[in-house]
Write a protein that binds this DNA or RNA. Sequence first.
DNA 1: TATGAATGAGTCTTCATTCAT
DNA 2: CATGAATGAAGACTCATTCAT
Lengths: 245, 245, 245, 245
Amino acid sequence: MTTVTGAGDRSDARRNRARVLSAAGEAFAERGLDVPLGDIARRAGVGAGTVYRHFPSKHALVEAVFAQQLGELVASGERRMSRSAPTEAFFGFILEVVGTTRSRATVCDALDADASWPRPVLTATVARLHQLLETLLRAAQRDGGVRPEIGPDDVVALTVGCAAMLRVRHDRAAGIRLVRLTLDGLRPSAPVVTEGRSFRDNRGPHPAPACEQCGTVLTLRPTGRPARYCGAACRQRAHRSRPSP
Amino acid sequence: MTTVTGAGDRSDARRNRARVLSAAGEAFAERGLDVPLGDIARRAGVGAGTVYRHFPSKHALVEAVFAQQLGELVASGERRMSRSAPTEAFFGFILEVVGTTRSRATVCDALDADASWPRPVLTATVARLHQLLETLLRAAQRDGGVRPEIGPDDVVALTVGCAAMLRVRHDRAAGIRLVRLTLDGLRPSAPVVTEGRSFRDNRGPHPAPACEQCGTVLTLRPTGRPARYCGAACRQRAHRSRPSP
Amino acid sequence: MTTVTGAGDRSDARRNRARVLSAAGEAFAERGLDVPLGDIARRAGVGAGTVYRHFPSKHALVEAVFAQQLGELVASGERRMSRSAPTEAFFGFILEVVGTTRSRATVCDALDADASWPRPVLTATVARLHQLLETLLRAAQRDGGVRPEIGPDDVVALTVGCAAMLRVRHDRAAGIRLVRLTLDGLRPSAPVVTEGRSFRDNRGPHPAPACEQCGTVLTLRPTGRPARYCGAACRQRAHRSRPSP
Amino acid sequence: MTTVTGAGDRSDARRNRARVLSAAGEAFAERGLDVPLGDIARRAGVGAGTVYRHFPSKHALVEAVFAQQLGELVASGERRMSRSAPTEAFFGFILEVVGTTRSRATVCDALDADASWPRPVLTATVARLHQLLETLLRAAQRDGGVRPEIGPDDVVALTVGCAAMLRVRHDRAAGIRLVRLTLDGLRPSAPVVTEGRSFRDNRGPHPAPACEQCGTVLTLRPTGRPARYCGAACRQRAHRSRPSP
DNA sequence: TATGAATGAGTCTTCATTCAT
DNA sequence: CATGAATGAAGACTCATTCAT
């Protein structure tokens, strides 16, 4: 049972394809879609021709990067759908989408129909993502966790907007608080309140505590000190990003 | 055989500068910052050399456009500050910023510190804008209209995020509802609210009625039918964008 | 009454356009259509960008070269039509076409519908040439100078074929004799003929003496030594190409 | 895990060489010498490396194709020389050369000394072809079938020219008529005449009937209906290319 | 050994910037 | 001065050739 990569069988080809894809992902994230292909090639440690062997045009490379990122996201969302309660799944997925979007060369650009760049071939994956969002949304609405008048297009717009917030707000924890504040607006008639260092519901049926680092919705134990992170990895990351006192 | 320009070449120059600036603003808004300089010159009805006479580089032109737009915005915000109640001024200004941001080649890009493009020289104007936002924010907070834990950076991030929402949500009225929903999250212990056809408010001290077309906060008369638009222009625009029955 | 060049009014632009066109014509003739555009630019003494200012693509440049050459040819043919007897005009024009075709990057390629290169935009000029050939042909046929079963397509094919002969046969005078031998096949029931040192005529109504250098049909004086060339220029050129004894 | 090729790798190699050669011949004929080597390899069903194992460069491959085609042609001509009457052999061979030349990537290009492409190594084969043509020509001239003043270089030029005609004249039968008309010019003092649908000598010592499809000179039986084609294959091909009534 | 992946020089084309008219 | 032509440094992309598998 091998992973389908789209490359031939040769190991070097597979490796190079992966390296190019990853280099392109990084380059796009850091410097935007305008980064020269030669730079991507250099970053991947291959020649320009190798990039073209695997992706017939720069456009195709952009699409491949997007498709991969979208694909991973959709898969994660689908897993989430079957494992969590509807409302948790919905908010958790949006937080994940938003939280893993690093720059504009990423998922949210694909959702943004105005972005002049890629799309065409993405249609299939984007459609899958839209479908998933709609499914999650409707389930959450049936669950009473999301206002009924919200539609899928609203969710897409909110997602893109929240990603933008996170990109602009360099303090990551603060950015996540903002995003959660915004998303809480989707909850029905939910008074949004805050206390302590983060925004929190005080009553409302859906407190939805989340990891301060990655935004994953946390399932809290009824006793003991409430968790701030979804696990050790995020705790460590948060620790590292704190100013050394 | 010289061109006779007659009296006062300076007025010519001033007019040309303005035309270039306006053409550049439109071009950036429609096609992004990558639009060729030659196109801008053609749109302005001048030669490429004339653009360079007024702006020593494309970079400088971009900055000038941003600075002008930011300047207008800041001026408008300052006026607003002296004319409206603090909370209204704050929300009204943000809605104005968001609503007049048409594409990425605009104000919000300037606020976005990640955007690779301009910044350097903008610092002064951006600082003024930040200053203004902070002033408006603090006043609104003293007025009790905005949660106290919100900071200026949060406002900037929210603004950029809301602009992104509006860009993605092609149904403009729905986009504005989303933005208002998001901004309502800033109100203290606020039931999330909107008026009109959706997102119904249930109580809450700050219904903040706004123009359904451009989002400007409306000062409602205590009697009579509540206004839906800020003026005739927006009413007409809304009318035009309704499906003909 | 100025010549329409397609360039703007500026003298340097006009000069550059002409230089590029001429450089391209030479380069195509010497090295084929595959010659890099940079080489053409260098040969013309301009930058690559200048070539692109005048011709939006290499394709367009090729077309412009062809169109110019075709245009000159057609104009010459039209003049010929009004000045010479029909049969003389017909053969004279074909000899001119053939004789001025230097390499494949030239007129005959345009006639050759198989040539993958240009055509599209050429259609108009090529159509004019075809029209002219047909007019000349029909007139010559009415004059009794060309077999009636010959059609315009035959003429085109013969023209291309004769040009190929001339290109291959490096001895130019011998090449022209071959061409004339071939064209004489078009004359009705014609003993195939030529004058001078080879291909002797014995009777036949159409001796059609021609310049040994360029193939122009000569109108011979009834007395004196028969002319071998159409003028001093061709005599001189023939002299130069003779091996120095 | 090596590929087991079994007994006699040499036969594999020989077969591959032949396949590459044939694929290259087709590709050159269809798309010109500019066809990428990768396409040839794919068409041959081998890898690019295999092409290079047999031919050290593209240049060498082109030469090999030419040499093979020339070789076949020369062999055919030599056979013809020993089997037919001199004049028939001469015209028949030229018609064969012309008729089997499909595009420029072929024999005639090799004869054309201007063609920038191959030549160097071809010298030997080309020399053999020239030798053959000269032998055939001289024999035909001794036979009284070709004008005495024609030289080998004339024959080469005529051959190339006739191939060009055939290439341009898309109606193949008409093209062959043109070629024959042209070649008839080589016959001594031969009035060239036509009757019916094709060009035919009415007296002249050498009627030289030929296949209307491929141009092969036909040996006619003294009785019965005169043959129009050299065999069933050509008759069928002609039938297929007729417009369905 | 055959395969096809990797390479990188070379080509067309764009566009910010300079400069002749 | 305004104009728009000239410039040339990149960038996307191709393909002959080499080399790892």
